[in-house]
Write a protein that binds this DNA or RNA. Structure first.
Lengths: 211, 211
DNA sequence: TTCAGATGATACTGATGGGTATCATCTGGC
DNA sequence: GCCAGATGATACCCATCAGTATCATCTGAA
């Protein structure tokens, strides 16, 4: 691999055309990297799909690694957006947890999320900052939202206890299904999904009562 | 990439030297692939470390992909061996579950397991058979052992219920810690580990009483 | 309008690496 | 011991690809 040099200097004033090219590059790269992995995509291919030229990649992102990190960060930021908009007004603890679990699984079991998850896990060895970024924008946010909901429905609850319950609910409701989706091509039925999430919700509610 | 051809024909009688070379290649490849990933290791490097020559790789394994699959299968078969030998005689349900959970974490949080896990998840997109192999020799076996223990300590329990409890215990005890280890460099303290496992065991025992 | 700098198109470079070919050497059944 | 076939050592082929260089064209602030 050629040693990267300073390359062309950073741009002083980027034009409108440049911004558009930059966005297109990042979006295209995200799509291709998620689908084919870091080593499975060449810069020439990205440029061929996105338009523009390799000149931009080095001017905007510094090289392949920079483009990769920017693309994945972008993808991570988007992946859980629908989950954050789930409406819980009027739902009790058990029903609300169930809805949160279902909404979470809706996102986590999409092919796009599974592919991104694979990529992040695989490349965290090469790009350590990726792992932290992922946990922050993934499980971290998710568990925090669940914990907040538990505290809202059980106002007197201890903060640590709520966080514990949130973590346990998250893991019981999501992890086995996520792993099965990652490793086996046949997803469980919707009925099975519902059962698993409901079971987790029941357990957590019982445990919350106990204090 | 050159299109693989039939290559040299399969060997009719392999010599003792050949068997030794084959084993060395597989072990070396497992080590290097787990550390550097599929694309991060060249055949020349494997041969340089293991001795022998590329001739063997094509004669024994058919090419890089075949060697990779053989190496990973080998590594998967070994990774949980210590877990299967945990002694549970004389322990009640809660204490036994706790010991199982601790023993499992002992294996899952080793650098070697984390690296193998990363590799398998990342490469399952390219080699689908890998995922099934992994689930079979990993979580599948683990959960089955936990379920068997629950049934042994609660003889009247419904089989499906035991399997459910096993899955939930497995996920509560292991998953969050595993994910944090995968994504963040700082492992949780032994104290925190013990607390999480104990908490999961308590929940499952209570749930088992309820029927 | 001008023109310096941004962007596009494209060819090139140097290194890498999977797979093949060739020939030398070793093994083991006979 | 013989010798066919297994194994080792090595050079080679050819495609890929990150990064660079060069020059043409476009943009937008002054």
């Amino acid at each position: 691999m050629p040693v990267p040099s300073a390359g062309r200097r950073a741009l002083a004033r980027r034009t409108e055309r440049g911004h558009a090219a930059c966005d297109r590059l990042r979006a295209t790269a995200a799509c291709l990297f998620v689908t084919h992995g870091y080593d499975g995509v060449s810069l020439d291919e990205i440029v061929r799909v996105a338009g523009g030229s390799k000149t931009n990649i080095y001017a905007f992102f510094g090289g392949k690694e920079g483009l990769f990190l920017a693309a994945i960060e972008h993808a991570c930021g988007q992946i859980l957006a629908p989950f954050h908009e789930v409406e819980l007004d009027g739902l009790g603890l058990e029903a609300g947890l169930a809805r949160l679990g279902e909404a979470l699984l809706d996102q986590l079991l999409t092919p796009r999320h599974l592919a991104l998850f694979r990529l992040v896990i695989g490349e965290t060895a090469r790009f350590p900052q990726l792992g932290a970024l992922w946990y922050r924008s993934g499980p971290g946010v998710t568990q925090a939202r669940i914990a907040a909901f538990i505290r809202a429905r059980r106002p007197g609850i201890d903060d640590d206890h709520a966080a514990d319950l949130a973590r346990m609910f998250h893991d019981m409701a999501v992890q086995d299904l996520l792993h099965r989706a990652l490793f086996a091509p046949d997803l469980p039925s919707a009925r099975e999904r519902t059962r698993i999430v409901a079971r987790a919700a029941v357990l957590v509610v019982r445990e919350a009562e106990r204090g």
